[in-house]
Amino acid sequence: MIIMNSKNKKREIVLPGEFLGENLEPGPGVYNEGKQAYASVLGVKSVRANRVNVVPLSGRYIPKVHDCIIGTIIEVGPSSWLVDINSPYPALLHITESPWRVDFGDAAKFLNIGDAVLVKVSGVDEIKRVQVTMKDIGLRKITGGQLMEIPPSRIPRVIGKGGSMISLIKRSTKCRMFVGQNGRIWLDGGNVSTAVAAIKKIEKEAHTFGLTDAIGKYLEGK
């Protein structure tokens, strides 16, 4: 266990199998054995009230219901599309979950292989069959702009506390952005190259403190 200090803030990095405490309720990244809680992934320990969880520092995207993500179409069926969502499991997008009136067999007229879509996870069952929907505000097919991919574990830092980081980047680059929980980011208009550089900087310095301020200074200097 290593504790990183910066002023009075603490960040504790834990490894799989490391003891976290007793009589704590296990959150994500934690498992219990009797009353003892242990970390199951490499990450940052955080305790809130009586609940302990470990925020992973690496790893694949595992779909969760209500996540907004960016997918690409990999297969077209008569009444559904198969969407790659940058996770071990592809997702199913049914024609009734699309914003259009699609006739049976006409799916390819609306979305074809290689198209990118903003979707929301609507269901994940116990064998991890994933269903996504486009029936929500802001969900659509992506036309124009550019996509970039970063490790999904870095996404919370790109968004920042209460969306502080993302709104900072949007404000100073005048970019339109959409950050998917699966590690894919869509950018369009404004100063895209600066926004990309800022996100790459966040990805590289994700473990440091005061990142929002550092990025603010970086963007001012541009």
């Binding site: 799989p16 242990y38 199951s40 490499l42 790893g59 694949r60």
Partner: peptide, 11 residues
């Protein structure tokens, strides 16, 4: 495995 972020009971 730990570097890949795979959940494990222990090393």
């Amino acid at each position: 495995l730990a570097d890949a972020g795979i959940p494990m009971r222990d090393f």
